[in-house]
Design a protein around this nucleic acid. Structure first.
Lengths: 109, 109
DNA sequence: CTGATATTTCGACAATCGTAGAAATATGAT
DNA sequence: ATCATATTTCTACGATTGTCGAAATATCAG
C-alpha cells in the first residue's frame, strides 16, 4: 500500500457520516446495503449521502454494484485489512509488542 | 469508544505528514522519538511539525513526555487497537467473516 | 413512450484545515 | 545572569471539504 492510498482511505473514514456508513456496511456483511437503506438509517439527504458514498468508493473501502434500480454498497474487508497492516507495518522495530492485542481482541465473531 | 473520538483519531491519521509521523512512532516502539528526530527524518518545518504532533496527541493516538529539553513522542498501541475494534465492531452480523485476516496477517513480529 | 422510483451530478457557499515565518516558552550549560 | 537549544504558540492566508437544493441519469412498469 502507498501512503497516498492510505491517506485517502483514512480521510474517507474521518467524517461522522462516512464513518457511520462504513460501520453499517461492516455490520451488514456480504449482502451489503442499498443506498436507500443507508439513507433511511442515517437520515442524510440523498445528495449528501451520494457524495459520501462516492468518497468511500473512490478510496476503495467500499464497493458498488447495481441491482436493477438500486445500488448495493458493501464494505471491502480486504482493503480494511491492508490499511491496518500499513499503519502497523514493521511495528516496534521487530520486537514482540502491544499490537498482539489485535489478535486477542476478537473484533469479529 | 465514541464516534467523535474515532473521527478525531482517523482525521489525525488522514494527512500525509501525520501518517508518516505515526508510522515512524509505531516502528520506533516503546522508546519513542524526540520531536527533533522526527523533524530530521521528515524535513517538515518545526512549527508545522508541532501542529501535527499536537493534532495526533489531542486525538490520543500518540503521547508526549518531556525529557529535559526534548519532548519524546510515542505511539499509543492501545488507542490504535480500540480504534480498529470500533471500526469492525459487530462485523458481518455475527457470522464468521473476512476480518479473520487481521489475525493471520501478523502485522507485528 | 410516459411516468414513477432510485440515485447521482452540478453548483455555490460557509466552515475547517495545513502551512510556515516570527515570536514566545522551557530547559540546561557556562 | 546570559546564551544556546528544543519546541511550541500565534497569526494570516490560500486550499480543501461538507452541505444540500435543483437538475440530470438510469432502470423498470404499464
Amino acid at each position: 500500500m502507498q501512503s497516498e492510498q492510505a491517506v485517502s482511505a483514512l480521510a474517507s473514514l474521518a467524517q461522522e457520516h462516512r464513518l457511520s456508513i462504513f460501520r453499517l456496511l461492516v455490520q451488514a456483511g456480504k449482502d451489503g446495503l442499498a443506498a436507500g437503506a443507508i439513507a433511511e438509517q442515517l437520515g442524510v439527504p440523498p445528495s449528501s449521502l451520494s457524495f459520501h458514498l462516492a468518497h468511500l468508493t473512490r478510496s476503495g473501502l467500499i464497493s458498488q454494484e447495481r441491482q436493477s434500480r438500486t445500488l448495493i454498497y458493501r464494505a471491502d474487508y480486504a482493503a480494511m485489512n491492508q490499511l491496518v497492516a500499513y499503519l502497523l507495518e514493521n511495528c516496534c522495530a521487530g520486537n514482540a509488542c502491544a499490537v498482539d492485542l489485535l489478535v486477542s481482541q476478537g473484533a469479529c465473531k
